[in-house]
Design a binder for these strands. Structure first.
Length: 221
DNA sequence: ACCCAGGGTCATA
DNA sequence: TATGACCATGGG
């Protein structure tokens, strides 16, 4: 037997959450003015620093290529050059177009909003270039659905806290967090943002956050 | 010069 | 199921 089990319960997770919230404050995610911008950003930020994504988004806006129809009408090469700062620009240009084609085919985001979360998630995952984390970013931050986003930081931090092994399949961890916390859009929103904030500034390669602003009272690895 | 970033796809065993 | 190669710019 000996299967490493997940030990996620609400009280432990809330202690960690409060600790992060007190240290960094409310993050106000997602950085984006519209649901469309959130979704485009979710694709562009795949394995990429957000700072570079902002440049790409600004380029698209400035070129007037920041809408479903404009992106579909633009040439592949043009989109690729505009999003160059975000890396993987050829692949991501195709992913943006694939996604806009999907939006058009589905009748726009208003039509998607009518769907149940499970069905919407399946549809998003059916788009080439949209994997589980990207889909969940969209569900949580563009559609306000109670979906807990799992990323590499989440795996590392809660693995260090001894709550998970860290190498569980994506769906196992997502179900674990959602089950322990219960559906709560605002909590999931703030929690994921705080995890990224904490990891980004203090726990990139360090085993412990020695330079963490939580200092000696830091209980978050 | 090296490492990593708010991942995902595809081929292979 | 589970690795590995690949995609590519920019900041530390």
């Amino acid at each position: 037997m000996g299967g490493k089990k997940i030990k996620l319960d609400r009280s432990d997770l809330m202690v960690a959450f409060q600790s992060l919230l007190e240290a960094y404050g409310s993050q106000g995610w997602w950085p984006g003015e519209t649901a469309f911008e959130v979704m485009i950003g979710a694709i562009l930020t795949q394995n990429t620093a957000w700072q570079n994504v902002e440049k790409a988004i600004n380029n698209l806006k400035q070129a007037g290529v920041f809408s479903e129809t404009a992106l579909l009408a633009a040439l592949d090469g043009e989109v690729a050059q505009l999003i160059r700062p975000s890396g993987y620009f050829n692949i991501k240009a195709d992913r943006l177009k694939q996604f806009c084609g999907f939006l058009q085919k589905q009748g726009g985001e208003d039509a998607l909003r009518e769907l149940e979360t499970i069905k919407l998630r399946e549809l998003l995952l059916s788009v080439k270039g949209v994997g589980p984390e990207t889909a969940d970013d969209m569900l949580l931050y563009a559609f306000q659905r109670p979906v807990f986003v799992i990323d590499a930081y989440t795996r590392r931090i809660f693995s260090r806290l001894g709550m998970v092994a860290g190498d569980e399949p994506y769906e196992v961890l997502r179900a674990g967090f959602e089950s322990a916390l219960g559906p709560d859009v605002d909590l999931f929103n703030e929690y994921h943002a705080l995890i990224v904030c904490h990891a980004k500034y203090f726990c990139n390669t360090k085993p412990k956050c020695s330079g963490c602003s939580l200092a000696s009272q830091c209980t978050i690895p």
